[in-house]
Computed example of a mutant assay.
Amino acid sequence: MLERINDLLAQVTVPADWAVATVVSVTGSVPREPGSTMFVHRDGTTIGSLSGGCVEAAVVDAALTALTTDRAELVGFGDADGTGFDVALTCGGELTVLVQPLNQLAGVLPGLRAIAERSPDGALDGALDDAISLVRALPGSTVPLPGPFLVRDGDALPTVRVPGLPERATGDLAAALRSGVTTTVPVFGPPEAGCPELGRLLVESRRSAARLLIYGANDHAAALARLARPLGWQVTVCDTRPVFATARRHPDAHDIVVQSPVDHLEAEAAAGRVDGRTAVVVLGHDPRFDLAVLDRALRLGLAYVGAMGSRTTDGRRRQDLLAGGLPAHLLASLHSPIGLDLGARTPPEVAVSVLAEIIAVTRRPDRRPAAHQLRDTTGPVHATPAFVSAAGREDRFSWT
Score class of each variant (00 low, 15 high):
residue 7 D to R: 14
residue 11 Q to S: 13
residue 13 T to I: 09
residue 17 D to R: 15
residue 18 W to E: 02
residue 29 S to W: 08
residue 30 V to T: 15
residue 36 S to I: 07
residue 45 T to H: 15
residue 54 C to P: 00
residue 62 A to V: 07
residue 64 L to P: 05
residue 67 L to I: 06
residue 72 A to V: 05
residue 78 G to W: 08
residue 86 D to Q: 12
residue 96 T to S: 14
residue 97 V to F: 11
residue 102 L to F: 05
residue 102 L to M: 12
residue 102 L to T: 02
residue 105 L to A: 07
residue 112 L to P: 00
residue 118 R to Y: 03
residue 119 S to M: 04
residue 119 S to Q: 06
residue 126 G to M: 04
residue 127 A to P: 01
residue 129 D to W: 10
residue 134 L to E: 01
residue 159 T to F: 03
residue 160 V to A: 15
residue 162 V to I: 15
residue 166 P to L: 10
residue 170 T to C: 13
residue 172 D to W: 11
residue 172 D to Y: 12
residue 173 L to W: 11
residue 183 T to Q: 10
residue 185 V to Y: 06
residue 190 P to S: 08
residue 192 E to M: 12
residue 208 S to M: 08
residue 212 L to P: 03
residue 214 I to A: 01
residue 218 N to F: 03
residue 219 D to E: 14
residue 220 H to V: 14
residue 231 L to K: 03
residue 234 Q to I: 00
residue 265 L to E: 02
residue 276 G to L: 09
residue 276 G to K: 10
residue 280 V to T: 09
residue 282 V to R: 01
residue 287 P to G: 11
residue 291 L to V: 09
residue 293 V to K: 00
residue 301 G to M: 02
residue 309 G to E: 06
residue 327 P to Q: 06
residue 328 A to L: 09
residue 332 A to Q: 12
residue 349 E to Y: 01
residue 355 L to W: 03
residue 365 P to K: 00
residue 367 R to D: 00
residue 367 R to T: 08
residue 372 H to F: 08
residue 373 Q to M: 12
residue 381 V to F: 04
residue 391 A to D: 15
residue 392 G to C: 05
residue 396 R to S: 14
residue 399 W to I: 13
